[in-house]
Design a protein around this nucleic acid. Structure first.
Lengths: 241, 241
DNA sequence: TCGCGTCCTGCGTAAACCCGCATCCGCTTG
DNA sequence: CAAGCGGATGCGGGTTTACGCAGGACGCGA
């Protein structure tokens, strides 16, 4: 078995290396990549079917790297090993995992034991292993009334990028009013009206900007999500007349 | 000599511990705190004058912790040891360092050697040691035409929080028009008009939201800065009629 | 088949935003 | 001292948002 480690922090990388060797004695080769670009390259060159990947790396982050890797070979098994369980990450990951692929999401704060168990489960047994905390987010993010639908999330990203209503309408093929309609829903769910102080303070907030702020504070959005969205936006802009 | 380490990642913490011991043989006690709150507490209890501190910790981050520590004893020597050189962090740090205090800012990507040298320079020689890359940012952020004044930065934070022009005016004791004036400067400097494709007739962007987006993408703002600003905002809101 | 809920859409209005033009003030410079 | 410069403020108006009201389309269980 060959395992590829993609992780930009040297300390974490060597820790992972050790964990992999001890959890998977049958693994004869461990390759280390220190960023997403190199990770993609190594995955291609070495045809590795087993990857441990950090999210949040500078340059190309884990989600982007995983997406291209999975696009080239959807049966790759990837264990995401991250410091955070931001909803933005969780959503980003579940958006790209191919049907039937075995993958995992383990937090760096998890114990040694847990990490090794996850390594075996995913790489040997082809099981999905999702950290309980992350699982909780995934659950909540479907079904629960106070969660966000894809369309609401989409429009959240669009206003976070700074698009006007009109531009969003054009991009998403909607009417102006529909965009505003969706915004309405978003504002409601994000509880952006600051009604907390009992009486009316004439809403001190610019709803649009406030929505972005609370989304960031709640980790519904993070830098990495913004970065990806910005790249997509630029692509789209270049295709416009 | 006593040294306090404030760092939430266990691997980094033990690495630091080792580095401190080897760089400072005269150090007889090393205390470890795994978050900002504990860090403040230990600093108070043990009256440590030498601290190595991570920025970006969950809960109370390094900048907040450092501020309260320095408020209690301004002669504390603090070495900030961070993964990032975001302008938001650099600005946040230089905003709180007391006059004449010895401090340092070293990136985690720096070599072992560099870290140990910094430890000695700051804790023994009371020298300031600022990573070259960070230094560069500091330089650029004063004087250079394409940099941000404090007032522009202030208003950037305010719109990022989602305040309306009127609310900002009230909070900063300005007239409405002055706020918009400052916004104007901000928009100019952030180059928010997307003039890149030759003739963008009706700019697709909501300037206010776009300004926040590019500030985030350029690391002029980050989560930690937003978090701090939000806390201050809530304080201010509670003081309002 | 009929409601019913959810989403899209148009119309219209009040408020907020963006910003050019112009004045005033305090501070630097020759 | 006069000129100049950058920031604060007023005025005015064109544009964009926020959102209530009111239809219309589509799917779904009774």
């Amino acid at each position: 078995m060959k395992v590829l480690i993609v992780e930009d922090d040297p300390l974490h990388r060597s820790y992972l290396h050790e964990a992999v060797c001890s959890a998977l004695p049958e693994c004869e080769t461990v390759i280390e990549a220190e960023n997403g670009i190199a990770g993609e390259q190594f995955a291609r060159d070495h045809k590795t079917a087993h990857i441990v990947m950090d999210l949040q790396m500078t340059g190309r982050n884990g989600i982007e790297a995983a997406r291209t890797i999975w696009k080239e070979r959807p049966d790759t098994r990837i264990l995401f090993w991250s410091n955070y369980s931001d909803e933005a990450y969780v959503r980003g990951v579940s958006r790209i995992v191919p049907d039937g692929a075995a993958y995992g999401y383990v937090l760096k704060s998890a114990s040694d034991e847990r990490l090794k168990l996850a390594l075996r489960s995913i790489f040997v047994e082809s099981q999905c292993v999702i950290d309980r905390e992350v699982r909780g987010l995934q659950q909540k993010s479907i079904g629960h009334p106070n969660s966000f639908t894809d369309s609401e999330y989409e429009i959240l990203v669009d206003i976070a990028l700074g698009l006007t209503d009109r531009a969003i309408a054009k991009r998403r093929n909607l009417s102006l009013r529909s965009v505003q309609n969706r915004l309405q829903h978003l504002y409601d769910k994000l509880d952006v009206y600051q009604t907390s102080p009992e009486d009316r303070l004439d809403s001190q907030f610019n709803l649009r900007a406030r929505a972005v702020a609370v989304a960031l504070l709640r980790k519904l959005l993070n830098y990495s999500a913004l970065e990806r969205a910005e790249a997509e936006l630029q692509d789209w802009l270049n295709d416009q007349p």
